[in-house]
Design a protein around this nucleic acid. Structure first.
Lengths: 192, 192
DNA sequence: TTGAATTGAGAACGAACGTTCTCTATATTG
DNA sequence: CAATATAGAGAACGTTCGTTCTCAATTCAA
C-alpha cells in the first residue's frame, strides 16, 4: 500500500467521520481504527490533526466543486445552468449523510480559534460566489444577481441541515427563478 | 447576590465566551473566572456544562426574537415589516461581536452528538419561519413567500459570518424586495 | 542468512477537560 | 457567644485527547 493510497484513505475516512460527528468529537484513535492504519503511520503521513482537517477541507472543496460543475454543465441554457445549482443542492440534501455544509460547520466549530480553517472556509465560499458570478454573467444578468443566488444557496444549506429536510432546495429554486427573471428583465432593459 | 442574579450573570458571560470562541473551546474554569463566581457556585446553579449551554441557547433565542420584533414593529406597512427583517440583520452583522448565528454554530458544533442542542436549533429556526409566515400573511402574500425570505435570511447570516462582512444583509434585502413584489402581484392576482 | 531498517500494536505521556472534594474562613442563628 | 451551616479557593480525580515512545515482528539488502 503506497503512501498516496494510505493518505487518501485517511482523508476520506476522516471526511466521513468529521461530517457525521463533528471534528472535535472524533479523536485520532477513532480515525486510526476506522481507516485501518497504525497510529505511527497516521503521524507519518500527517504531522498533526489540524493538517488532516485541512486536507479534509481541500477534499471537500474539490469534490463539491466538481459535483456542482457536472450538474451545471448538464444543463442547456444559461438560465438552466443557474437553476442547476439548486438541483445539485436538492440531490445533495437527499443523501443520508447530509449534515450541512462542511465549511459552515468547520467554520462554526473551529473558525474562531483557527485562522487557517476560517480562511479556507472564506475562500471556499468566495470561489462559489465567483462561479455563480460567471454563470450569471454568461446569462447576461446584472452583477447583483450572483450574490443574491449565492445567499439563497447558503440559506438552503443551513435550513436543510437544521430542519433535517430537503425541501429548502425546491423553495430556494423557485425563489431563484423569480430573481433570475427579474434580473434578466433589468439586464436586457439596461443593455438596450 | 441572589441566585437569579448569579445565574443570569453566568449565562450572559457564557453567551459571550461561547460566541467568541466556540462552546467546546471554553472550559468551565475559564467561565468561572470570567463570571467571577466560584466553581462551587457554578455547579450549585447549573448541574452541568450542557445545562449552561441550553440556558445560553434560551437566552439567545429570547434576545434575538425580541430584537427582531422591535425592529419589525417600528416599520409602517406590512411590506416594510417584511423588509425590516433584513434591516435587523444589517444592524446585527455590524456588531463587533458578530460571529454568525449562534444556533447554526451550536448545531454545527454539537448537533451531531447532542439531540437536545439539535432539537433546540430546529425549534428556533422553526419559530423564525413561523414569525416570517405571520408577517407574510399579514401582507397578503401567498404561503410560498415566507420560506423564501427565511432562506434568504439564513443565507445572509452564514455569508456575513464567513466573509466577515455585513454586505450580505443589503444584498439579501434587495433580493427580498424582488421576491415580495413578485409574490404580492401573484397573491393579488390569485385573490382577484 | 544475517544485519539493518521499517512497521504495527499499543503503552505511555503531558495537558486539558468536566466534575467533585477538602479545607478554611465567613455568615447565620438560637 | 457558641454552634452550625454556607461560601470561596483551588486541589484532586477520572477521563479523554493529541502526540510520542517502546518493543517485538517483519521486511529488505547484501
Amino acid at each position: 500500500m503506497t503512501s498516496p493510497e494510505i493518505r487518501s484513505r485517511i482523508v476520506e475516512t476522516a471526511d466521513g467521520l468529521y461530517n457525521a460527528k463533528g471534528i472535535q468529537a472524533v479523536g485520532m484513535d477513532e480515525l486510526r481504527a476506522a481507516a485501518h492504519v497504525s497510529l505511527k503511520r497516521l503521524y507519518q503521513e500527517f504531522p498533526s490533526k489540524s493538517s488532516i482537517v485541512m486536507a479534509v477541507l481541500e477534499r471537500r472543496h474539490r469534490s463539491w466543486a466538481a459535483g456542482l460543475d457536472a450538474q451545471v454543465r448538464a444543463a442547456g441554457s444559461p438560465r438552466a445552468r443557474l437553476l442547476a445549482i439548486f438541483d445539485y443542492l436538492a440531490h445533495w440534501f437527499g443523501e443520508d449523510s447530509f449534515r450541512g455544509c462542511g465549511f459552515i460547520n468547520s467554520f462554526a466549530e473551529l473558525g474562531a480559534m483557527s485562522p487557517e480553517v476560517a480562511e479556507y472556509a472564506r475562500k471556499h465560499k468566495e470561489s462559489f460566489q465567483e462561479y455563480v458570478g460567471d454563470l450569471a454573467e454568461a446569462a447576461g444578468a446584472p452583477p447583483y444577481l450572483a450574490p443574491q443566488l449565492s445567499i439563497l444557496a447558503e440559506g438552503a444549506q443551513t435550513t436543510a441541515a437544521i430542519a433535517g429536510s430537503s425541501e429548502a432546495a425546491g423553495q430556494a429554486r423557485r425563489a431563484a427563478e423569480v430573481l433570475i427573471d427579474a434580473a434578466l428583465r433589468e439586464g436586457i432593459r439596461g443593455a438596450a
